[in-house]
């Protein structure tokens, strides 16, 4: 868990980045006929079946910060917690939760909402409420001490 690192409100960059994410989701639908859910693509890349395009998609995600470095001269700004037990638990919960709940921020959030899926809307409301409650507890009740 990170102590609060101040970040600037960036509506235009965030809107532009969101539109690119949407364009990618449309590419995956128009080309592959699938949902661009990263949890699902990750699971599909390690399972049997049609793995090649999913592995290539993840390679594209990995290439993005390298292209960013080449284009701008610096890696993207990021602050990652160095609480390693916390990050291990977080990773396990994200993996278990997205597999059990059939989707993540992109699969239920972007693609599910675009399909007007009530099931995805229920998932999105649930994970945002639980995530916000977790941040509230860690930052404001126990002071980010884990």
């Amino acid at each position: 868990m990170l102590p609060a690192t101040p970040t600037d409100f960036t509506p235009w960059a965030s809107l532009g980045g969101g539109i690119l994410i949407g364009v990618s989701a449309v590419m995956v639908m128009a080309l592959f006929g699938r949902i661009a859910g990263i949890a699902g693509i990750t699971a599909g890349a390690v399972a049997q079946g049609d793995r090649a395009w999913r592995i290539a998609f993840i390679a594209g995600l990995l290439a993005a910060p390298i292209m960013w470095l080449i284009a701008t001269g610096a890696f993207p700004a990021q602050t990652v917690s160095d609480n390693l037990p916390g990050m291990g638990i977080a990773g396990l919960l994200v993996g278990i939760g997205t597999a059990l709940g059939s989707g993540c921020t992109s699969g239920h959030g972007v693609c599910g909402l675009a399909r007007l899926s009530g099931r995805s809307l229920a998932a999105v409301v649930t994970f945002i409420v639980f995530a916000a409650a977790t941040v509230f507890v860690l930052r404001h009740m126990i002071g980010g001490s884990i």
């Binding site: 990652v80 919960l93 993996g95 939760g97 709940g101 921020t105 639980f130 995530a131």
Partner: peptide, 18 residues
């Protein structure tokens, strides 16, 4: 329950899969 577990993990680390 999956969405709730995912939300807790997202709130701890700030990372979702992408």
């Amino acid at each position: 329950s999956g969405a709730a577990l995912f939300g807790i993990g997202w709130g701890i680390g700030g990372f979702c899969p992408g």
